[in-house]
Amino acid sequence: MSVLTLATALVGRPVVTLGGDDIGQVKDVVYAAESRRVTGFTLAGRGLLSGPLRRALPWTGVHAVGRDAVMISDEESLTGRDEVAERTELRDHNLVGGAVLTEGGTALGTVEDMILEVGTVADVVGCRITTSEAIPPAGRSVLLPLPGEAIASGEALVVPEYVAGRAVDDLAAFRTATRSARSVSEGER
């Protein structure tokens, strides 16, 4: 079973051991740029004034991503922050604020958030954007699917033209749209 969630909804979520101790909170979601798979989280301390932690949580150390907490077995699940960051080039905050461009060069809008499908693995399956005039009315917040052929860099996301026509308003509609898109492609085989 997998659930759709916005990346920003994970930020600030406490990271708790199965022993019941909180060891930090999610600071950033880290992705592998090519596969767009979540490879881990950078962490911050839990206090108001606490900064980033030197240790990070690789996806392999995650026991479960729940509604209220990210569960890990114990502190052994953590690794050095550089280890998680090294394997990947993209973090949540690198994508946010970037432009979404079609392959033809039309700017569809500005990235506000990433949509993750979280199960035994977590993948980026879409993004929330503030629309440009290309998806009228401009200035709206919509959700766009990111098909496999989309390209992400720390600067921009490049998507196929048809993505512009697939904008929906909320996660429920996004889920329905993704399902029907999948069943179409399966039917074509």
Binding site: P14, V16, T17, G19, G20, D21, D22, A69, M71
Partner: peptide
Amino acid sequence: LVGCGSYAVV
């Protein structure tokens, strides 16, 4: 029961 720590009972 799985654990009982500073933050939660699991």
